[in-house]
Design a protein around this nucleic acid. Sequence first.
DNA 1: GTGAAAGCGCTAACAG
DNA 2: CTGTTAGCGCTTTCAC
Lengths: 359, 359
Amino acid sequence: MARRRQAVTIKHVAADAGVSLQTVSRVINNEPSVREEMKRRVQASIDKLGYVPSIAAQRMSGSRSYLILAVNDRDRTIADWQARQGTDWVDQMLLGGMLKCAEHGYRMIVELVDTHSDHVERELLAAIAALQPDGIILTPPHSDNAQIVSLLAAQNIPFVRIGSEEMAPGIPVSMDDEGSARQATRHLIAQGHCRIGFISGSTEYNLSTWRVDGWRAAMAEAGLAIDGLLADGDFSYASGQKAAHQLLAGPNRPTAIIASNDQMALATLEVARALRLVVPEDLSLISFDNTPLVHFTRPPLTAVDQPIAMTASKAVELIIAAQKGDAPPAALTVVSATMIERESVAAPKGGEKIVAMRG
Amino acid sequence: MARRRQAVTIKHVAADAGVSLQTVSRVINNEPSVREEMKRRVQASIDKLGYVPSIAAQRMSGSRSYLILAVNDRDRTIADWQARQGTDWVDQMLLGGMLKCAEHGYRMIVELVDTHSDHVERELLAAIAALQPDGIILTPPHSDNAQIVSLLAAQNIPFVRIGSEEMAPGIPVSMDDEGSARQATRHLIAQGHCRIGFISGSTEYNLSTWRVDGWRAAMAEAGLAIDGLLADGDFSYASGQKAAHQLLAGPNRPTAIIASNDQMALATLEVARALRLVVPEDLSLISFDNTPLVHFTRPPLTAVDQPIAMTASKAVELIIAAQKGDAPPAALTVVSATMIERESVAAPKGGEKIVAMRG
DNA sequence: GTGAAAGCGCTAACAG
DNA sequence: CTGTTAGCGCTTTCAC
């Protein structure tokens, strides 16, 4: 392949505008110390020649690379892509993150990294060395991986930890998992439910714990018991089936269930159907994440939306700010989740409803 | 932000191994003219120091950037991401393309470009100037956009046109739309269907035409009439509703329908339900693309899978080969699609079946 | 086969 | 405010 060179460089612009390279550079980087008239003149040449700075050259000379790495868990991401069940985490990251990047002349590069492997360090370091990104966005379960976090801190590279609340190095951005779990639980309580089951997610993810905590808190504040109402899952469909069975097959079953993700909610729906329980008449159901599949179930699921796009967008903003030298936010950044009401929730049958209405 | 420099550079490796920069460079690029022993010695230092070449520096000195651009239509892509209906085109591109890139030390960057706008050229040129990618993957409808194609050809940059069959500049890779439409139609004919309706896609996409052609060809080879059996859609749900209505509401309606994408198939399913037609008993249905939603409909849809991951992977291979100087394939590269059978197809009721069985 | 020199496009540091 | 100088890390000549 022929060796391609930059078609039009800063030199051409400088020559065309009759100024030094430096002045052009200053205009490009929007530095204050340039006269308006100069600025205009240079900008005219830039537009005329269609000049665009080479990020490789910019990076070389020690400034920004205009690259932000979005680091996702390799196994889970690939599994999701292959399963084709509609999990659109990466798309939502791109939607929020890439578009925000574009606004500022940055690009987002998706990078897959094994959380588990003993060569996490090597993988990450290699990506950093190769790309020299201006910032890194960590997603669960990386966000609270001590090894990764300390490595990044040592590299002195701005990074955001999505879905984290730990005040470790890097900027944590929470998606308010506990709050939204509480909100969902309260919603069911307000409908008159007293026995509300909860299916938890993989303990590898801290957000699993927070979601359980939110449910627990809401139940407690309403003075409701939770014995036998918590079932363990791991986000997989199979684990959801098992958990739903455990919750629904016995006596004194819950009148409502919250599942920690959509796959497990789907599983619960199937188990309910098999048990001849009609949703929402016999069983109300709320799921977490609000991935595309919630539209297609019968009935469509009321779900807590995981605000990934918004969070990714926020993460990019925080990184660009950090890059500019701004201090990170003092308080935890929280992007709040909202619950999308569909058709899987109703008041419970029978007396419970009345009790609640009186209360 | 502190100015970050490459932690370990080629210099460190050279010093450690006691050789010149040049030799290290040769080892990195796997050039033949290095003695085995030297190579081993240098490699040992590389491993020891954890050296990874800086892509920016490599790019600067005129060699590869190890970056491949995957160019998608901005409006459509963003609309899909926002709609959250499970369209996973980008994911599948990443699955196939990014993983193949990783095998060769490349990265894939997703880029969104407006097909329509008058500044397509500027957008693309800007991306090329900024990133200096080693290759570009064009997706429909860009793949047959003459403006884009000639621009890229002029840039002397290897590019693949996915979903194209035109022998224009760049390397076309077909997903065999006509062939798979023919296959789907034949499948229905083999089940005994004689009146097979077809809902076409947006004419902005050439593949829409090919899919129609495949259906037409299969109908013709079976000696079946197609009058009143073709309805125009544009890939949207709404257009699918309209087309399905047109096909199903009149007299002498088809016993089977092929929709040019999943959204329109979904719409057809709803229209059929409204018309009290049971799928597949009263109406067989085959859709195109096989996006996640096909799992979740009632019944799950038999669908022609669009082999995006495989195609993206192939595209990356072709670009890397071109980059190395290999000649592009002489013949059109075809990644064949397969039909995934689910539960939306059955033999038609009544006489038609018998006729077909006799034939 | 290996090494030394030059330069890719840009910016940081310093002059003026 | 603007221009000059010196690299950034690497690969390409070209010598040896």
